[in-house]
Design a protein around this nucleic acid. Structure first.
Lengths: 143, 143
DNA sequence: GAAGATTGATCGATCAATCTTT
DNA sequence: AAAGATTGATCGATCAATCTTC
């Protein structure tokens, strides 16, 4: 009755597990340090990276999210005073407000440290390089 | 004003993105093929693997989940007729019911194929081996 | 009282339907 | 009509508090 789990399935389970653990570690650090949720920070990093302003559709594209999820999230972020919405031709423009800018700048060093500790520090230089290569390969849409 | 994202942060963003994409691909296949949610299948795979019966605490431990999440999920799975709860000494025993057994057996080949397609097939043999090694390393709790 | 499990409340994500602007 | 965005409903996850059994 025992199910013989195949090689690809086993890799999938391992992948999923590693992800949950790493994510829980990093996100745990982040929320205790900044009180910021992970999706909030994802959006604000994109905004900050782009100079503080992006089309909503551009954010969705960069993060690979669907419109609905982003719209709901932005509603909450707007309520927190971190971003502002402005109707423009062909869409909506999202700007990072001062409070948002402050909070993202305060968060980035901690995020860097956390990512280093929970990912980079566990790997040697070779594996770190290999991991980047592998992740890139998994992301290239050739399958 | 543009934020210079450090190396570890960049790796974290890449990791997160790759995960979302791979997960969406595999889970997408799975739900269209079987109508089963991913957490449901996770639990049932563990049960099936263990011969059809496990302590609730053992499932939580194997999956690295907290008790609350598992309890709520089992309530839903029980309602679907896939598992049964039995009070025993020192806890609760979960059994895979015939309907659950059927559905998990029907799902596994598709899961194997999907995991192969979305992960293994995108990597060469070397990278596949490296990925297993890296994931194992990230999971060993030495940090 | 400590470990295992449940409950209820709240928050976030997903799905289907709708609205708006070009 | 098509693309961008919003809304409301439902489902799953998380948090704090509680209950049960040893």
């Amino acid at each position: 009755m025992s199910t013989d789990v195949g090689g690809a399935t086993e890799l999938w389970l391992l992948w999923k597990r590693a992800n949950e653990v790493v994510r829980a570690d990093v996100v745990g650090d982040m929320t205790t340090q900044t009180g910021l949720s992970e999706p909030d920070l994802s959006v604000m990093v994109q905004l900050s990276d782009a100079g503080g302003m992006l089309r909503q559709s551009a954010i969705a594209a960069r993060l690979g999210w669907d419109r609905t999820r982003l719209s709901h999230l932005l509603t909450r972020m707007e309520a927190r005073g971190h971003v502002a919405r402005t109707r423009v031709t062909n869409g909506v423009e999202i700007t990072l407000r001062p409070a948002g800018q402050r909070v993202v700048e305060a968060s980035l060093p901690g995020l860097e440290a956390s990512a280093r500790r929970h990912i980079l520090d566990k790997l040697g230089d070779d594996d770190a390089k290999a991991l980047r290569r592998i992740l890139d390969r998994l992301l290239s849409g050739d399958a």
